Amino acid sequence: MLVWERPEPPERPVPAPLSRERIVETAIRLADAAGLEAVSLRKVAAELDVGPMRLYGYLATKEELLDLMVDAVYAEVRPTGEGWRAVLRSVAETTRQTVLRHEWLADLLGGRPQLGPHVLARGEAVVAALDGVDVDLVMPVVGAVNAYVIGAVRREIAERRAERATGLDEQQWQRANGPYLERRFATGRFAALEKVIRDGAHLDADETFQLGLGFVLDGIEAHLAR
């Protein structure tokens, strides 16, 4: 039986009250502070001041704990708006905001579908908004938006982590690498790239995400209108 349907053990107030919800909240707090490497059944049990074996009454593996954590934060992804485009945009935007609050989520996106109640509720709202679209196109449409969001937020989180690791923000990194690029451009072999870097708009993360998302939604809309 999957963890979503498995009943919890009877409540035991001594030595400390425990529930699946408390376990997940504690794991999320640890991950928010120090990443997924800070999350293990042993570390969560220590934070809750209980023995590690006691957690096995509530979940069987660390993978189940990660599934529960993902589903818990998906409660923050709230589809809103009227029509498929507005709903897909809201899901994309709130997914990004959720990942920026919980950086570890970027490492768990993608792969096999999550089956928790909050993920399923989000999926239901999105698919319902696509009512009337050819049923064979619904999942490819959702998949296209998901693929864009996952790629965009993973890149954004990777840049955050690189900044912390190197101690260089984006402008400092550009200044440090500028002389190298100038030498490369001086060879004349990278004229197209040089023009874009010198003359193109330098958008911030929000602008970049919104523009790319618009490209994806425009493409979907054009295809559905055929």
Score class of each variant (00 low, 15 high):
E63P: 00
D32H: 02
T95R: 01
D206H: 08
L213P: 02
R6K: 11
E21I: 06
G111W: 11
P79A: 05
G83E: 10
G57V: 07
A86H: 09
A92Y: 00
T26N: 14
G178D: 15
P113M: 12
Q114V: 01
V216C: 02
D199S: 11
P9F: 11
H118M: 04
D32N: 06
T61Q: 11
E103Y: 00
P52H: 05
V77C: 01
A34F: 07
A121N: 07
I197C: 08
R183A: 12
L65M: 14
L115A: 11
W104E: 00
V39M: 07
A86M: 04
L66M: 08
D136A: 12
R122G: 06
A147M: 06
L181A: 15
A45D: 07
K62A: 06
Q210M: 08
A121E: 13
E124G: 06
R96K: 10
R226E: 03
R122L: 05
R85T: 02
L181S: 15
E170M: 09
A165F: 08
L18F: 08
G116C: 13
P140I: 07
G51I: 09
R96W: 01
V44D: 13
T26G: 12
R20C: 09
R164A: 11
V77M: 00
G219N: 04
V127P: 05
D32E: 12
A31V: 10
L30F: 09
P15L: 03
A176I: 04
P17H: 04
E170L: 13
E82C: 03
V216N: 01
W4H: 12
P140V: 08
A144H: 04
L109Y: 01
R198S: 12
Q210A: 15
I220V: 12
R20T: 15
R101N: 03
V145S: 03
S40R: 11
A106P: 01
Q210N: 10
Y148W: 07
G116V: 14
W104V: 09
L65R: 11
E76F: 07
L55F: 09
D218R: 01
S19I: 10
P17S: 06
I157S: 02
P117K: 00
T208S: 13
R198H: 10
E47D: 13
L36P: 00
R101G: 02
A186I: 03
G35Q: 08
V142Y: 11
L130F: 03
I23S: 02
V145T: 08
E103H: 06
T166Y: 01
E207N: 13
A125D: 07
A34I: 04
A34C: 07
T26Q: 14
E5Q: 11
Q171Y: 12
P13M: 04
L41M: 10
H202F: 12
H118R: 15
A121V: 03
R54H: 08
V91K: 01
H118P: 01
R189G: 15
L36Y: 03
L168W: 14
R189E: 15
G57Q: 07
V138K: 15
L30N: 10
D131E: 13
P113V: 07
R154F: 00
H223A: 13
R198Y: 11
A225D: 04
A75H: 02
L181V: 12
G143P: 01
G151T: 00
E194C: 09
N177S: 14
K43Y: 07
R122I: 05
H202G: 14
W4V: 11
A176W: 09
A192L: 14
V149F: 00
G167M: 04
G83L: 06
A201E: 15
A162P: 08
D32T: 02
